[in-house]
């Protein structure tokens, strides 16, 4: 188990290094570039040359890459040229990561809290009204473009009904104390209940929009998985042994049906950032996704590089966690070498 974990972690390092090289080459070949982004199109050639040299963009790409790698190891990923010019990329990441994490956690919680019970109920009453309705709902959930759903939610519940704020993470006038960077947590720690509640209200609509796809997928996998397990011999055995229905459901059906569901939750969590780019843009939510959208617009290499690397790193880590959690849920895997490829 330990050897397996170490091997996977080494693989993770390899993926990140390979990805950093790829991204580095890629981002350098983007049209436009930070010099025009910073100076505009009408800058004099001399000024352009000066800034190019200052940013080190006149050197061969390999020299640039190794310099970058050396600095990156000590946590210096360069200075932002577009998202928040002047701030270091790391600063921007640290500032925005808690925002996206809060949003993602809430989105996944919603998806799990609705998806799993609904999937389980739908499977138990296969072909019933609830089953058919929720299957159709989950299919629509995948088919609606995320940013459009975000827009509709914003228009209806924030603009028309005024139940929720339209943009941002927190009302400006609250003057809440910052401790961790997680606004909800901050409010709870400092007992500024209104600040915590305000942060939650800012999260709800974007989180619902963001949860539409994970919900649909988690629901469908749960339903399919429970249907599979209900048909298994050991369920029939448990029934014939005279076990009570709640015990069978909890110990036999649910536990065995959860394995593919856990995988799916992991996969969906890792993929949330893609949806966050769209959702955060709609709600002007100051997280990683918004920084990515602005970064692409303004060719902010240092920020883009760091954020995409982190996204990929998180994605791979989450998948590793999923593979390891198999062993906890399914004792059969514990003895083997664990999820080969």
């Amino acid at each position: 188990m330990l050897r397996y974990t170490v091997r996977r972690l080494l693989q993770l390092v390899l993926v990140v290094v390979a990805l950093s090289l790829l991204l580095f080459a890629w981002l350098r070949s983007l049209p436009g570039g930070p010099v025009s982004a910073l100076l505009g199109e009408r800058a004099t050639p001399a000024l352009r040359a000066q800034l190019t040299a200052e940013l080190g963009l006149d050197q061969p790409i390999f020299v640039q890459y190794f310099k970058f790698l050396g600095r990156a190891l000590s946590g210096d990923f360069g200075v932002s040229t577009g998202v928040q010019p002047g701030d270091s990329a790391m600063e921007i990441f640290l500032q925005r990561f808690p925002a996206t994490l809060e949003l993602s956690v809430l989105a996944i919680l919603i998806a799990v809290a609705v998806g799993i019970p609904l999937g389980y109920l739908a499977a138990r009453r296969r072909g019933g009204v609830l089953d058919n309705l929720s299957v159709v709902g989950s299919l629509i959930g995948v088919a609606v473009p995320v940013f459009f759903l975000a827009f509709v939610l914003k228009q209806v519940f924030a603009v028309e009904l005024g139940w929720f704020p339209t943009t941002g993470r927190q009302e400006g006038g609250l003057d809440a104390t910052r401790v961790t960077g997680f606004f909800v947590l901050d409010g709870l720690i400092t007992r500024e209940w209104d600040a915590a509640w305000d942060a939650v209200k800012h999260l709800i609509l974007p989180a619902i929009a963001l949860s539409s796809i994970p919900f649909s997928v988690i629901f469908r996998i749960t339903r399919a998985s429970v249907l599979d397990v209900l048909d298994e011999d050991f369920v029939r055995t448990a029934e014939s042994k005279g076990l009570t229905t709640p015990v069978i459901r909890r110990r036999h059906v649910l536990r065995n049906a959860m394995l593919p569901v856990v995988t799916t939750i992991g996969l969906q969590t890792g993929a949330l950032l893609a949806g966050a780019v769209l959702t955060e843009k709609v709600f002007a939510f100051p997280g990683i996704g918004q920084a990515l959208a602005i970064g692409f617009e303004r060719r902010d290499y240092p920020v883009l590089l760091l954020l995409i690397l982190c996204a990929a790193g998180v994605f791979v880590l989450v998948n590793l966690a999923v593979d390891l959690s198999y062993a906890v849920i399914d004792p059969r895997i514990r003895s083997g070498s664990g999820g080969g490829r």
Binding site: V15, A18, L19, L22, L23, W26, S29, L30, P31, G32, G270, A271, L272, L273, A274, G275, V277, L278, L292, F296, I308, A311, A312, F315, V316
Partner: peptide, 20 residues
């Protein structure tokens, strides 16, 4: 595997922004 380790839309955006 490296390509699959980037969320889909993010990869598409990266590729899309390669073109002037």
């Amino acid at each position: 595997d490296v390509m699959l380790s980037i969320p889909g839309l993010l990869l598409a955006v990266s590729i899309g922004s390669l073109f002037a």
